[in-house]
Structures are given as C-alpha cells and as structure tokens.
Computed example of a mutant assay.
Amino acid sequence: MSEEIAALVRRLAAESRDDRAAARDALIALGAPVVPHLLPLLKNDGTPGGTAAELCLEDLGTAALAPLREVRAHGPGALRSAALRMLAALGGGDALSDADRAAVERLVRIKLPDEQPGDLPADRWIAVPKAEVADIVRALDLHDARPVTTAMGLSAAVHHENSLSHPADDGSDATAYRVFITPEFEGWRLVYGADYLNENWAQVVTRLSAHCGEAHFYLVDDYDGAWLWWVSENGQDRRGYRTYGDPQWIGEPMEFERDLMPDEDPDSEDYDEEYAEGVRDPEEVASSISVQPTVVEVLDRVGHGWLAVTDPDVGHGRFRGALDI
C-alpha cells in the first residue's frame, strides 16, 4: 500500500494536469492512510504538487483529522507544522489538541506587546470614535471577545471562514459571524467582518452610533465599481452616498464637503462637477473625517485588537482556517 501511495504522490507533481488529477482522485479514494504521505508536499507552497496535496486533504475532510492529530502527537517532527496548519484549515480550533490551543494562546500573548499592525484592508470597514471595546461588544451583542494580533484578527474575520450557518432554537437556519475590533488609532477603532458587514452593515452602523454616539461605514468595491460611505449619529442617518443607491445621496453635505463644493456657475469652464453634490470617494471621506485604514501604520496606536463572535452558542473553534499570528 505505501509503495502505491508513494507513486501516486509523486504523480501529483507531474507536468500533465490530467495525470495530476488522476493521481489526486486515486489518493482520495484510498482515504486516511495517504495523509502522512501528502504532508511533505505542503512545504512547497504554490507548486503544482503542493497545491494538489492540499486539495487532496481538503477533499478528505474530516477523514484526515485523526491521522493529522497522530502526526502532531508522534511526528515525524518535520511534518508537525504542516499537520497543525491542515488541522486548523479542515477543522478549526476545535480540531486542535488542548496543548496546541494553549501554545497558540501563548504565542499571541508574546506577540501582542510589540506587534506592528501594518496597513489595514480598505474594501469595507466601520470606524467608531472614542469607543471602548466593551462599548462596541455591547452595542453589537458580541460574545467571547479575546485578545488577538491584528494579523490574526484579519485572518479570522476577513481572509478565512468568517460566517457559519447553524440551526436556531426554532429550527430555522441562523448565521454566526466573526468580528474583529482593531486597536485604537488616534482615537478611532475600526471594525471588520467580511460577511458580517456585507450582510448587516446598515444595522451595524446604526446600532454602534446609538450606543457610541457616532459610527461610519465605508465600502470600496472594485469588482462592481461601487462606492459607499455612511455616517450615523445617535442612531440616525446623517449623511451617505451609494453609487447604485436610490437615492444616491442622503442628508446634507458635511462641512468638509462644502469646502470642496464649487461656488462658480455650473456653466463656467472652472466648474468642478466631481464635487458638485458632495464627496463620493470613501477613502477621501475617511481621510477627512476619520482615519484611512491604509495609513494606520504611521498613526498613534493604543492597545490591541479583539476577536469576537455574534452567537454565544457558536464559539471560535468551529470556524475553519489556519490563522496568521
């Protein structure tokens, strides 16, 4: 059996795509015994063999968990790191041993004091001024908030699985989300959650402003060519723009917009039509009235980030993904 598996594993790196696909199908059919043989290929990220091996493990799913745990517990040592990554990718934190979870928590505590967050994503985010983490957690009814590095928070809430469907008490389907609250940057905390904000941004910005006084939502969708920004104060919409909204604008122009709006005759050559109704670009708005995610690296930072979930019955461990730390 081991010789057959070894031959199939070598074919995963074949030049022929058909040959790689046939080897992958054969390995999946053999099941759990192939797992230790696939792990060495994971050291070669981005190569055809490494990618094919990872796809094999993903297709094996839960059947791969027991042999991966065996490698974590008993080696060989050179494969233990790859086994840990695949355990998290396939089964989330719940698939890890108590010792592995404790080791991750220790590493987070070590990295937190000196972490360098770097720039943050600027596709969709919420900005809240002068709010404590507890205020945001309470406003959004979040649960199990725990300290994380910025890299870990973004991995969990943006780059990996960040929403889960599960049965509600009444038998209907419910969705649980992961939400990342950043450190404070010059008085502002940013809130991330790819699926959470995509599906709930209007409710989120309203609830945050009702509890914290003010909240902004920003969206830059390069795929659809959509811009959206929204300012809510004390639970009420103040000002907003949506590329595909009907209407596009709500509220009266803010002071920073009035400074940019042209006073000249619309028929004159100097009339700046771009700012005739207000400012459309969310990043330009953020730079004027809050903070831009792409420049936080140079801003004063206070504290660290927090990762939370929206459902008390769905903990962090059920979300799949090997998180950065």
Rank of each mutant, 00 (worst) to 15 (best):
S163G: 03
S163C: 12
L164T: 00
S165A: 10
S165T: 10
H166Q: 05
H166F: 15
P167H: 05
P167C: 07
P167L: 10
P167V: 09
A168Q: 11
A168H: 07
D169E: 15
G171P: 06
G171N: 08
S172L: 10
S172E: 14
S172R: 12
D173W: 11
T175R: 15
A176G: 13
A176H: 09
R178Y: 02
R178Q: 15
R178D: 00
R178N: 02
V179I: 05
V179K: 01
F180P: 01
I181A: 08
T182R: 04
T182H: 03
P183I: 08
P183Q: 10
P183L: 10
E184M: 13
E184L: 06
F185E: 06
F185N: 01
F185Q: 03
E186I: 02
E186D: 15
E186L: 02
E186G: 00
W188R: 01
L190S: 04
V191M: 05
Y192F: 15
G193T: 01
G193E: 04
G193C: 07
A194R: 12
D195E: 14
Y196T: 02
L197Y: 00
L197K: 02
L197F: 01
N198H: 15
E199R: 09
E199D: 15
E199N: 14
E199W: 10
N200C: 05
W201F: 13
W201G: 05
W201T: 03
A202Y: 09
Q203C: 03
Q203N: 12
V204W: 01
V204Q: 05
V204L: 06
V205Y: 04
V205K: 03
V205C: 05
T206K: 13
T206E: 15
R207P: 00
H211A: 15
C212T: 14
C212Q: 06
G213N: 11
G213E: 09
G213K: 09
E214T: 15
A215Y: 08
H216M: 12
H216L: 14
F217Q: 04
F217C: 08
Y218G: 00
Y218L: 11
L219S: 10
V220C: 10
V220Q: 09
D221T: 03
D221Y: 09
D222V: 13
Y223W: 12
Y223D: 13
D224Q: 14
W227I: 02
W227N: 06
W227H: 13
W229Y: 03
W230T: 04
W230R: 15
V231D: 13
V231K: 14
S232K: 08
E233I: 14
E233D: 07
D237W: 01
R238I: 15
R239C: 00
R239H: 08
G240L: 11
R242Y: 09
R242I: 03
T243C: 05
T243F: 07
T243Q: 08
Y244T: 11
Y244I: 03
G245A: 09
G245M: 10
D246W: 04
P247S: 10
P247Y: 03
Q248H: 11
Q248A: 11
Q248V: 01
W249P: 07
W249I: 03
I250G: 08
I250H: 12
G251F: 02
E252A: 14
E252Q: 12
E255Q: 14
E255M: 07
E257C: 00
E257H: 06
E257I: 00
R258N: 08
